[in-house]
Simulated assay, not measured.
Amino acid sequence: MKLLLEEQLLREPARPDDSLARCYVRACASGGLIGNVSTQMALLDTGTQQFPVSITEGNEPDDNCYVVSPQTAYSGYAREELNRLGRPWLTWPLKTLIQGVVHLLRWAKVDKLVQVNNWLLSTNLYPTNWDVTELPAITALLRQTFPKHGFGFRSLNDFSNRDLRQCLETLGYLSIPSRQVYLFDGRAGAQAPFLKHRNTQLDATLLRRSPYEVVPGSALSDADFQRIEHLYNLLYLDKYCTLNPHYSAQWMQRGQQDGWLQMRALRSPEGRIDGALGWFANAALISTPIVGYDTALPQGAGLYRQLTCLCLQEAVERRQVLNFSSGAAEFKRWRGGQPQIEYSLIYVAHLSWGRRWVWIVLSRLLHGIGVPLMRKLKL
């Protein structure tokens, strides 16, 4: 079992049999592919699996993206989410609570953190064939290599990762709830339950009658990728939150070329790309870190509905589970999405008592207040 830092990988020549994880770390190490992510990358090689690893020191920019920064996830991003709730009676006391937590998180250096299997995505997928008996050795390696860092794993939910989560908790990892995601189980193929929902069927009819051509990523030009970056920004940065990852056209293009991202686009009869998505998948799961469309076009065009339909159809064809991330909760529920609380599992037992205490308080606050609110408000 070994950990290779990004500078070590850059000194090695690329080989045709390189794993997707190795290709990804090498791509991200070249820098500038994700505008608001500041982190060092490494590759963890367990002998049976290879994982990208993010390493932050806690002195990165304040607006460092939540995919590497718990400080941003549980303060800045949480405030943005509260603003969208539109419930002043609830948001005011929660904002006050968050403001108090911010200072504790900064004092505890929560961003001094190593995260395993971190693909710098909103949702990281875990291999289904991973032998979790490797976890004690991974924990020992990280504890020895990073004695002053916390370390852990993001994007775990009990539908997809119950055994992994339970094993980590047995080893002393803290469970930190993060958000509620929506899963669409396509393992039954054409008999998948979500296909019976009326809204799902209406979306399929819309896509079938659409004037748009579905274009595979292999047929996209450099200019198309630039357009897709713009469309992603319109949705995820301008409409939702500037703290979302700033994925560049070069990142998407590199992913399509290396095989860790599969792009699809909707091209109009005039030849313009008006919507696009990017899939990230393994043998059992699929996620969509890239979704974008021209938000200036009339809502009646149903671009988001068509893109959602493409995702659901892909899950059915692959007979896989689609993790459709968080956000647009009501929209996803109407199409049969099943909610699951997502967690990070963080190991801090080797840190000072004060830093451990802050992580414990964060865990208890989120389990006691955050999770019930997410479930009650159907976020």
Rank of each mutant, 00 (worst) to 15 (best):
V53A: 05
Y236P: 01
I228W: 01
I360E: 15
H149P: 04
A219K: 15
N157V: 01
Q191V: 01
Y173I: 00
P211F: 00
D62Q: 13
V181L: 08
L125S: 11
T205C: 07
K376I: 04
N36Q: 09
M41S: 15
I98R: 14
N282G: 07
S122Y: 08
H230V: 02
G354H: 15
L365F: 14
M41Y: 12
Q115A: 04
N199S: 07
A328C: 07
A204Y: 14
F146N: 15
R79L: 06
L351R: 13
L10H: 14
L85T: 09
L82K: 00
I176F: 02
Y182A: 04
P245M: 01
G35Y: 06
N323V: 03
F280I: 11
I346N: 05
V25E: 00
G368W: 04
G35D: 01
L243A: 05
G76C: 03
N233D: 13
R15S: 07
P269N: 07
R267W: 02
P372Y: 05
Q49N: 12
K332W: 05
G32K: 06
D258T: 10
Y240Q: 12
A29E: 03
I346P: 15
R165V: 03
D185R: 11
D274F: 00
G327Q: 05
M41T: 10
A296K: 14
Q340W: 00
L97Q: 03
H149Q: 11
P298K: 07
L104H: 14
D294Q: 08
R267Q: 06
Y304A: 09
S175K: 13
N117P: 03
I346W: 12
T123A: 04
G32M: 01
L135D: 14
A329K: 03
V110E: 00
L44I: 07
L362Y: 01
P136N: 15
M41W: 08
K2Y: 02
T295L: 04
W251G: 02
P88G: 08
L9C: 11
N64G: 04
